[in-house]
Design a protein around this nucleic acid. Structure first.
Length: 643
RNA sequence: GCUCAUAUAGCUCAGCGGUAGAGCACUUGCUUGGUAAGUAAGAGGUCACCGGUUCAAGUCCGGUUAUGAGCUCCA
């Protein structure tokens, strides 16, 4: 048979040869490094026979595929076996690979604690040191069930029982050991190919991810081809921890949370300065793109939420308020708005709209409240009270495409200005449960898709992930250390305008229903500020820094000169402060550096005499002596980069 | 919401049945010092909240609330 390698070269091998034979045919080095084989794009074990002409590539640890197979073997063969050795009563559930690592779910009789991980790691190392070969055996459903029922592995039995296949259940063994696990494979040919690993954490997880099922214990780990890669990964985790916005927010005194208002931000002066600056920035952008800013009520009668469908579909996430009947003669049920859309339709509905008025673009920095489940809150990233940079566009179906284009322009400008160079677009298409006819969906999906295509932007399709009222585009930005954050969204809605009777008079003089587009660029100010803090690790761009300049004196004789500088800076609108305290200059520099003040101007006797300043920028240990007037000009130029 | 963990001074944390501790921050002295911590002293706590065990509870046991890591949601 003919075996075609990735470089298109062809080798002839006997029918029934396996991946190892092919690797050997190519060279002994490759045979040694081979972990598995990809046959016509499907991963197979090295021992699997190949019976017909095929495209084959040998998988080694140097590919992502190889790394994943190693992680898979590590969890399913090594971690699982180690746990069974130490806790014979533990039950095996599943153990897949995930980004950068793997996990395995177990049911323990007695719960284990995080410091048991070390013990398990040692046991794993012992198993790896045996360098055992891994042996695959194929079993019929009946035999496979027998193996796991005699091993008392109910989760494995349940997986087999639910499987549609009757034969060829793959069971993996290790030489000289009774351990066995059911697995889709492929696995390493032997444990000597395992690289460097570390068990990282312990957490609960539901069997099959369903909260109605039993909670299992999940052990997480990370694994790499060598120590160097493992350490690099562990360092990157540390780096992410250092950037945690909750930690930096505390250090910079930007905001806090407290028990009486879980999930609601208490913004401190400096944090609120950042918030306002970001909002002003957004306001300018929206004006540029012809939005009209509006403002709508926070507390709205349930009648509107019934009409919009939120009362039915979203009530469990809403804060509902009752008026105290003892003090008022009326009984009303209100809800804090979880979204702004129904209110925006109310504004749209005031006065008759003509097709000539469309598109109507309303924007609101809408304060929304959602009762999020208690376990989901996370600093500024997931809160119960937040403000969206929300907007709704009422337009005709024909206008969807041009509105998409305009929105993407607005969004990419905004992200670029805020320092994010890359973002990905995801197009989510019709879900199974949806409203509206297929023709309308066709139109909406095509409009979104062709608009992105015309802009030459790459995008990924997420089938069936759209909102029930329409398809959507999600915008995911990448931060300075490669993490992804979903911020912007653009959703076409054919449902709410109908429910809430939005209309316009068309060219034909008849009434028509407009399409409503829900859109946000930042998502929410709270979350976006969290992303900004983590992206810049607190060192915000000059124009966004809450305190931009500190003038620090070396001796008290120059206090008057420092005040003069502050006065000039303030006159040009720079947010600044002086530090005249009786402290050494290195103490002052340290303090303001740790508060991430972008510029520290140090003045002493020399500076006062020469009317200069010593300028020191955050992130640099260098200082530069500049004429005070020139420094002032420079600082102002820097501040105006965006305006 | 679920599982596990955590809650001690403004911050970071130690203490784990017998008078509440450290470093930093804060206040007050001394110090006027040239780019990431000068120096001494002082002040600072219903040990999250409610209940239980005990002669005695930050300390042990329940419960509540919040936070953290996951899960599940959400986008």
């Amino acid at each position: 048979m003919k075996i075609t390698l990735p470089d298109r070269s062809v080798r002839k091998l006997e029918v029934g040869s396996n991946g190892l034979d092919i690797a050997n045919d190519i060279g002994p080095g490759l045979a040694k490094a081979a972990l598995a084989v990809s046959v016509n794009g499907i991963q197979k074990d090295l021992c699997d026979p190949i019976n017909e002409d095929s495209d084959v590539s040998i998988i080694t640890i140097d590919s992502d595929e190889g790394l994943e197979i190693m992680r898979h073997t590590l969890t399913a063969q090594v971690l699982a076996r180690a746990v069974k050795n130490l806790y014979p009563d533990a039950k095996l559930a599943i153990g897949p690979t995930i980004k950068d690592g793997f996990y395995y779910d177990f049911e323990f009789v007695k719960p284990i604690a995080p410091n048991d991980l070390e013990k398990i790691e040692k046991e794993m190392q012992k198993i790896i040191n045996s360098k055992s070969a891994i042996i695959k055996k194929l079993h019929s459903k009946k035999d496979a069930l027998k193996v796991f029922s005699s091993n008392a592995e109910p989760y494995k039995e349940s997986i087999i029982n639910e499987s549609e296949q009757e034969d060829n259940f793959q069971l993996y063994y290790q030489e000289n050991d009774e351990f066995v696990d059911l697995c889709r494979g492929p696995h390493l040919p032997s444990l000597k190919h395992i690289g460097a690993f570390k068990l990282t954490k312990l957490a609960g997880a539901y069997w099959k991810g369903d909260s109605k099922n039993k909670m299992l214990t999940r052990i997480y780990g990370t694994a790499w081809k060598n120590e160097k890669d493992l350490n690099a990964y562990l360092e990157s985790i540390e780096e992410a921890e250092k950037r945690d916005h909750r930690k930096i927010g505390k250090e910079m005194n930007l905001f806090h949370f407290q028990e009486e208002a879980p999930g609601m931000v208490f913004w401190h002066p400096d944090g609120w300065t950042v918030y306002r600056l970001l909002q002003d920035f957004m306001r300018d952008k929206l004006r540029e793109f012809d939005y009209q800013e509006i403002n709508t009520p926070l507390v709205v009668d349930r009648k509107l939420w019934e009409a919009s469908g939120h009362w039915d579909k979203y009530r469990e996430n809403m804060f509902i308020t009752e008026i105290d009947e003892e003090h008022a003669n009326e009984k009303r049920t209100n809800a804090l708005k979880p979204m702004n859309c129904p209110c925006h339709v109310q504004v749209y509905n005031q006065g008759l709209k003509s097709y000539r008025d469309l598109p109507v673009r309303y924007a609101e920095f809408g304060s929304c409240h959602r009762y999020e489940a208690s376990g989901t809150m996370h600093g500024l990233m997931r809160v119960r009270g937040f403000t969206q940079d929300d907007g709704h566009i009422f337009c005709t179906e024909e206008q969807i495409e041009s509105e998409t284009k305009l929105f993407i322009e607005l969004l990419s400008q905004t992200y670029r200005d805020l320092g994010f160079k890359n973002f990905d677009i995801k197009l989510s298409t019709r879900p199974e449960i949806r409203v509206g006819s297929d023709e309308v969906w066709d139109k909406a999906e095509n409009a979104l898709e062709s608009a992105i295509k015309k802009l030459n932007l790459p995008f990924e399709i997420q089938e069936g992930d759209g909102a029930f009222y329409g398809p959507k585009l999600d915008f995911v930005l990448t931060d300075a250390i490669g993490r992804e954050w979903q911020c912007g969204t653009f959703q076409a809605d054919f449902n709410l305008p109908e429910r809430l009777d939005a209309e316009y008079v068309g060219e034909d003089g008849k009434k028509h229903m407009p399409v409503m587009i829900h859109r946000a660029v930042l998502g929410s100010f709270e979350r976006f500020i969290g992303v900004l803090i983590e992206n810049y690790s607190g060192k915000l761009p000059f124009w966004l820094a809450p305190v931009q300049v500190i003038v620090a004196t070396i001796i008290s004789d120059v206090d008057d000169y420092a005040e003069e500088i502050i006065h000039s800076l303030e006159e040009t609108g720079i947010r600044c402060d002086s530090d005249l305290r009786n402290e050494k200059i290195s103490y002052k520099v340290r303090e303001h550096s740790s508060k991430k003040v972008p510029i520290i101007l140090v003045v002493g006797k020399n500076e006062k005499n020469d009317r200069t300043v010593s300028i020191r920028r955050i992130g640099s240990n260098n200082t530069e002596m500049l004429d005070f007037k020139i420094a002032l000009k420079q600082i102002n130029e820097e501040n105006n980069i965006l305006s």
